[in-house]
């Protein structure tokens, strides 16, 4: 049985088709594009909030999108423990909606950045990283202007001590260095999970790295992890 993915489309979302293509075109799963006015996501196994500029990111990335009708259903989906992933703008939305702690601020360069980065798997026991080795380095593109992860000291300490930093920017060799951090994120954080372990937010775009022709297949690891997680749970 394929997994059923809801790929939520806000006005201004643009990674919806890419995510659907990776999930159904490459991996053969069921992936529906769900318009942001939908209020019921209970039929889906996994919800993805893809990248883009919801409502143009006017005011602040994700600040308006979090009030979309679908967001209550997104919260309900997380509440029952089902996997929820926010990628890029989706990560920003999850932080704005307080489904994840912290915030994503303007890149320290004050410029948009679209480059290939490396990120290290810091916790290989989440539903999103089961298929990875601890410390495995994934090569995946980023594309954002507001991706600098910030949180207060207490939150950062809590994230670090409880294994909730899922991914950290690193060099190709897996070294965490200032040069490898593309946006100035605190603790070089590229992705985090919630305290329940079922909500992931990350800035890099795994859906863009699912075929050799696109320059990398490393993004598949996230989706394959979810398939494995579903099998283990069944």
């Amino acid at each position: 049985m394929p997994l059923r993915f809801a790929v939520v489309v806000f006005p201004g979302t643009w990674s919806d088709h890419d995510t659907q293509y990776a999930l159904s075109g490459v991996l053969g799963q069921e992936a529906d594009l769900v318009w942001h006015r939908e209020r019921d996501l209970s039929r889906y196994d996994v919800v993805v909030l893809p990248g883009g500029f919801s409502y143009g990111d006017y005011l602040r990335a994700g600040a308006i999108g979090r009030f979309s009708p679908v967001m209550e259903a997104v919260a309900a989906h997380a509440e029952v423990g089902k996997p929820l992933i926010g990628i890029c703008n989706g990560f920003q939305l999850l932080c704005e909606a307080h489904l994840l702690p912290g915030a994503l601020m303007r890149n320290d360069s004050l410029q948009y950045r679209c480059v290939w980065v490396h990120m290290r798997v810091e916790n290989a026991e989440t539903p999103f990283t089961l298929a990875c080795q601890p410390g495995q380095v994934l090569r995946i593109p980023i594309s954002h202007g507001e991706g600098r992860y910030v949180a207060d000291e207490e939150t950062l300490a809590e994230l670090e001590s409880s294994g909730r930093v899922a991914f950290r920017y690193c060099s190709a060799e897996g070294e965490v260095t200032a040069e490898a951090n593309p946006n100035g994120s605190m603790n070089d954080i590229a992705g985090i999970i919630n305290d329940g372990g079922n909500v992931l937010g990350l800035m890099p775009h795994p859906e863009r790295a699912c075929e050799p022709l696109m320059g990398s297949e490393d993004g598949l690891a996230l989706w394959l992890s979810l398939l494995e997680w579903a099998k283990v749970r069944a």
């Binding site: 293509y21 948009y112 679209c114 775009h205 863009r208």
Partner: peptide, 13 residues
């Protein structure tokens, strides 16, 4: 060009 999204739509080879 690092300020431009180059890979959205996943067609860029």
């Amino acid at each position: 060009y690092r300020q431009y999204d180059q890979s959205v739509l996943t067609n860029t080879v």
